[in-house]
Amino acid sequence: MTYKAILNGKTLKGETTTEAVDAATAEKVFKQYANDNGVDGEWTYDDATKTFTVTE
């Protein structure tokens, strides 16, 4: 399944996708990606669109 992350960081804005077996696995991948890029904020998840959003 393909999951998407939308990054609304102070220094990084954009989107990325990952293939994962479930939302929990995708969330770990996206949170690591955000952390590696200095983005730390509030996370939300929309199951209907399989989209995570982080906003700083």
Results as ranks from 00 to 15, higher is better:
1 M>P: 07
1 M>W: 13
1 M>K: 12
1 M>F: 15
1 M>C: 13
2 T>L: 14
2 T>K: 12
2 T>I: 14
2 T>H: 08
2 T>P: 06
2 T>A: 07
2 T>N: 06
2 T>D: 04
3 Y>A: 03
3 Y>R: 02
3 Y>C: 04
3 Y>E: 03
4 K>Y: 13
4 K>G: 03
4 K>P: 02
4 K>D: 03
4 K>I: 11
5 A>C: 15
5 A>I: 15
5 A>Q: 02
5 A>V: 15
5 A>F: 15
6 I>S: 04
6 I>D: 03
6 I>P: 02
6 I>M: 06
6 I>W: 04
7 L>T: 02
7 L>P: 01
7 L>R: 00
7 L>W: 15
8 N>C: 14
8 N>R: 12
8 N>Q: 08
9 G>Y: 06
9 G>P: 03
9 G>I: 07
9 G>S: 09
10 K>I: 14
10 K>L: 14
10 K>Q: 11
10 K>N: 10
11 T>F: 14
11 T>K: 11
11 T>Y: 14
12 L>A: 07
12 L>G: 07
13 K>E: 05
13 K>Y: 12
13 K>A: 06
14 G>L: 15
14 G>H: 12
14 G>M: 15
14 G>Q: 12
14 G>E: 10
14 G>T: 14
15 E>G: 05
15 E>V: 14
15 E>W: 14
16 T>M: 15
16 T>S: 07
16 T>N: 04
16 T>P: 03
17 T>E: 09
17 T>K: 08
17 T>Q: 10
18 T>L: 11
18 T>V: 14
18 T>E: 04
19 E>S: 10
19 E>V: 15
19 E>D: 11
19 E>A: 08
19 E>M: 14
19 E>T: 14
20 A>E: 04
20 A>I: 02
20 A>L: 01
21 V>A: 13
21 V>F: 12
21 V>I: 13
21 V>Y: 12
21 V>P: 15
22 D>E: 04
22 D>G: 03
22 D>P: 01
22 D>C: 05
23 A>E: 07
23 A>C: 13
23 A>Q: 11
23 A>F: 12
23 A>D: 05
24 A>C: 13
24 A>T: 09
24 A>L: 11
24 A>R: 11
24 A>W: 10
24 A>F: 10
25 T>E: 13
25 T>K: 06
25 T>P: 02
25 T>Q: 12
26 A>C: 02
26 A>G: 01
26 A>D: 00
26 A>P: 01
26 A>M: 00
26 A>W: 01
27 E>K: 11
27 E>W: 15
27 E>T: 04
27 E>D: 04
27 E>P: 00
27 E>M: 15
27 E>Q: 12
28 K>A: 13
28 K>L: 12
28 K>G: 08
28 K>P: 02
28 K>M: 12
28 K>I: 11
29 V>E: 06
29 V>R: 09
29 V>C: 08
29 V>G: 03
29 V>S: 05
30 F>V: 01
30 F>N: 00
30 F>W: 01
31 K>W: 07
31 K>G: 02
31 K>Y: 06
31 K>V: 06
31 K>R: 15
31 K>Q: 07
31 K>F: 06
32 Q>I: 10
32 Q>L: 09
32 Q>F: 05
32 Q>A: 11
32 Q>S: 09
33 Y>Q: 04
33 Y>D: 01
33 Y>M: 07
33 Y>G: 00
34 A>Y: 06
34 A>P: 00
34 A>K: 01
34 A>C: 12
34 A>N: 01
34 A>W: 06
34 A>T: 05
35 N>C: 14
35 N>F: 15
35 N>G: 09
35 N>H: 14
35 N>D: 10
36 D>A: 13
36 D>E: 13
36 D>W: 08
36 D>N: 09
36 D>V: 08
37 N>G: 05
37 N>H: 14
37 N>R: 14
37 N>S: 08
37 N>W: 14
38 G>S: 06
38 G>Y: 06
38 G>F: 07
38 G>N: 09
38 G>D: 07
38 G>K: 07
38 G>C: 08
39 V>H: 04
39 V>E: 02
40 D>Y: 15
40 D>W: 14
40 D>C: 13
41 G>A: 04
41 G>Q: 02
41 G>L: 04
41 G>N: 03
41 G>K: 01
41 G>V: 03
41 G>E: 00
41 G>S: 02
42 E>D: 11
42 E>F: 12
42 E>L: 12
42 E>Q: 11
43 W>N: 01
43 W>S: 01
43 W>G: 00
43 W>Q: 01
43 W>L: 03
43 W>K: 00
43 W>F: 05
43 W>A: 01
43 W>Y: 02
44 T>S: 12
44 T>E: 11
44 T>P: 01
44 T>D: 08
45 Y>H: 01
45 Y>D: 01
45 Y>F: 06
45 Y>Q: 01
45 Y>K: 01
46 D>V: 05
46 D>C: 09
46 D>T: 04
46 D>I: 04
47 D>H: 11
47 D>R: 08
47 D>S: 12
47 D>T: 09
47 D>Y: 09
48 A>W: 07
48 A>I: 11
48 A>D: 11
48 A>Y: 10
48 A>M: 10
48 A>G: 08
49 T>D: 04
49 T>L: 07
49 T>G: 04
49 T>E: 05
49 T>Q: 06
50 K>L: 11
50 K>D: 01
50 K>E: 01
51 T>V: 06
51 T>R: 03
52 F>E: 00
52 F>V: 00
52 F>I: 00
53 T>R: 06
53 T>F: 12
53 T>G: 02
53 T>E: 05
53 T>Y: 13
53 T>A: 05
53 T>K: 05
54 V>Q: 02
54 V>L: 14
54 V>N: 02
54 V>H: 04
54 V>P: 00
55 T>V: 09
55 T>D: 06
55 T>A: 05
55 T>I: 09
55 T>Y: 08
55 T>S: 09
56 E>Q: 10
56 E>V: 08
56 E>A: 08
56 E>G: 06
56 E>F: 09
